[in-house]
Structure formats: structure tokens, C-alpha cells
């Protein structure tokens, strides 16, 4: 009895030690970034192993916000991501409703067909889309980011929402129909209202995906400095902010903290949906 008890405490302690060491290794890069963002240039480049800024300065944040176009980039990221999210949630839920609600013989074939398109690497499609956007005059405009999300919203999202719609009892729809509701009202006031959790999950993943997208802005917005979203502004800074050949890591780090911050804040606001969403999307396979 006592042997197993000591064994248990030992095991528990070992587990904590391992977990804490792992966490430290994970956090260390971020800690280095965070502290560097408060350092002066000389301190940042010269004393990387010291995690205490000496002297402490907020100048880097002031400079990356005022001089480096952070606010502009933030605004661009926000409206691109918000519109992408709205479009994706709206159109993928419409499509999901079609698959969940109607009995049509060819339904499953169409669904599998659409599902197969997930396998196509983005590059196969991107080159021709770029050519198309060029012809439409959409390069260096926001249209390549604003319009496509409204067209179907991605089959994986459709998949997730469809699963949820299917769980809604049929009797509810029938009752609504007796009360005179058409399909649109069924979709909008019944199915959508009852599926808020999955819609938030899909929304969050769409939002982070769009926020973190780098290749899209690099292709479509490189030529328009005032339209660059945060990811591209960040890269531009990394590329150009230097004294001589040495990058000004202090300013770059401050901007980097500011780039990561919105997502970290969002994570803590929507923690539940992040984890639940992954569980749902992971298991379903």
C-alpha cells in the first residue's frame, strides 16, 4: 500500500518536472522575443542571453506602430479576416444545409466529388487564379480576399457544419413547416440558431487561417504597400529594418509581439471553441 503510494508520488513529481521543463523550452523563444522588444538596439544585439532589458524602453513599440505601418497592416488584416470569416461561415452553412436537409439521390456523389478537391495542392490552382486575377485587374486589390470566401466556403467547413445540422431533430423542421416556414426561414432561424457552437468553431479557424496567410498577400498585395496585411508588413520589416547589415531585432521583435498578440487574445476569448473544434474535426476522420 505505502509502496504504491510513494510510487505514485514519484511518478507524479516526475511528470510535473518533465512537463515544466518542456514548457520552459517552449516558452524560452517567446520570452527572448518578448524581452528583446523592450531592449535598446545595442542591448538586443549584444546581450541575447540576458532576459532582462537594460535599459527598459517602450520606444520599439512606439516606432513599430508609428513608423512601420503596423496600424495600417492591423486594419487590413482585420477587415480581410472578418470578411473572409463572414463569407465562409455564411456560404459553407448554406451548402451544408443543402447536404443535411434535402433527400436527393445524387447528393452523396456530389459531396464525395467536392471532398476530393481537398487533395489538390493550392499551387495547382493558384497559378491559374493569379492569371485570372491579372486579367480581371484584381492584383493589388482586396477582391481576391473578399470574394472567394463567399463562394462555397471550403468543403471541410461544409463537412463540419453538415454533421451538426444532421443532429437537429427532424420534427423541429416539420413543426416549423406546419407553422408556415419556408426553407430559407428554416435555415436561417432554425438550423443556424441551433448550430452556433460549430459556426463559431468554423469561424475561428477561418479567421486564424486568413490572419496567418502569407502567400496570398505576398502574391496579390505586394505591389500595394498601403494594402498589406500584418503578415506581410511583418515580413517587410524583417527584410528591411536594419542598421548596416545588422537587423534591428529590438524593433522587429516589438512588431512581432504585436503580430502575435491579437491571436493570443482571441485564443483566450474563445478557448472553448478552439479545443472543441479540433476535437470534432479530428475525430470525424
Amino acid at each position: 500500500m505505502t509502496v504504491s503510494k510513494t510510487k505514485k508520488t514519484v511518478r507524479c513529481t516526475v511528470r510535473y518536472v518533465v512537463l515544466i521543463v518542456c514548457s520552459l523550452i517552449l516558452i524560452l523563444p517567446f520570452l527572448s522575443l518578448f524581452t528583446t522588444s523592450f531592449k535598446t538596439f545595442e542591448d538586443a544585439v549584444g546581450n541575447a542571453n540576458s532576459l532582462i532589458p537594460k535599459p527598459f524602453t517602450l520606444d520599439n513599440y512606439v516606432r513599430s506602430v508609428t513608423e512601420q505601418g503596423y496600424l495600417r497592416g492591423l486594419w487590413n488584416s482585420v477587415h480581410i479576416s472578418v470578411l473572409t470569416t463572414i463569407g465562409t461561415v455564411f456560404s459553407s452553412s448554406l451548402v451544408a444545409y443543402a447536404f443535411a436537409r434535402f433527400e436527393v439521390r445524387e447528393k452523396e456523389y456530389i459531396f464525395s466529388f467536392l471532398l476530393m478537391s481537398v487533395m489538390i495542392p493550392g499551387q495547382v490552382l493558384q497559378i491559374s487564379m493569379y492569371a485570372l486575377y491579372t486579367r480581371l485587374g484584381w492584383i493589388d486589390t482586396f477582391f481576391p480576399f473578399w470574394i472567394p470566401p463567399f463562394l462555397g466556403g471550403g468543403i471541410m467547413n461544409v463537412f463540419l457544419i453538415r454533421q451538426f445540422f444532421r443532429g437537429i431533430p427532424k420534427t423541429l423542421f416539420e413543426a416549423a413547416e406546419i407553422d408556415g416556414a419556408g426553407e430559407w426561414r428554416n435555415y436561417w432561424t432554425l438550423a443556424m440558431r441551433m448550430s452556433v457552437p460549430i459556426l463559431i468553431t468554423v469561424g475561428i479557424f477561418t479567421f486564424t487561417g486568413s490572419w496567418n496567410d502569407f502567400m496570398g498577400p505576398l502574391l496579390y498585395l505586394s505591389g500595394a504597400p498601403e494594402k498589406r496585411p500584418l503578415a506581410l508588413v511583418m515580413y517587410q520589416m524583417y527584410d528591411t529594418v536594419k542598421i548596416g547589415d545588422t537587423k534591428q531585432w529590438n524593433i522587429i521583435s516589438a512588431a512581432n509581439v504585436l503580430t502575435m498578440l491579437p491571436l493570443i487574445i482571441m485564443y483566450f476569448c474563445c478557448q472553448k471553441y478552439f479545443i472543441e473544434g479540433i476535437s470534432v474535426s479530428g475525430i470525424k476522420q
Partner: peptide, 26 residues
């Protein structure tokens, strides 16, 4: 069937323009 295809419309348009067209074009 009518309702099915009406709700499916965004995906039909999206698939044609954003997947099928660039797929064959490339």
C-alpha cells in the same frame, strides 16, 4: 431537388470558378 440546388449554388459557382477552372487551366 430545387431547394437542394438553390442552397448548393454558392458551392457550384465556387467550385467551377475556384477549383475546376484553374485545375484544367493549369
Amino acid at each position: 431537388r430545387l431547394h437542394f440546388y438553390l442552397f448548393l449554388l454558392p458551392a457550384v459557382i465556387g467550385f467551377s470558378i475556384l477549383t475546376a477552372y484553374p485545375f484544367f487551366s493549369s
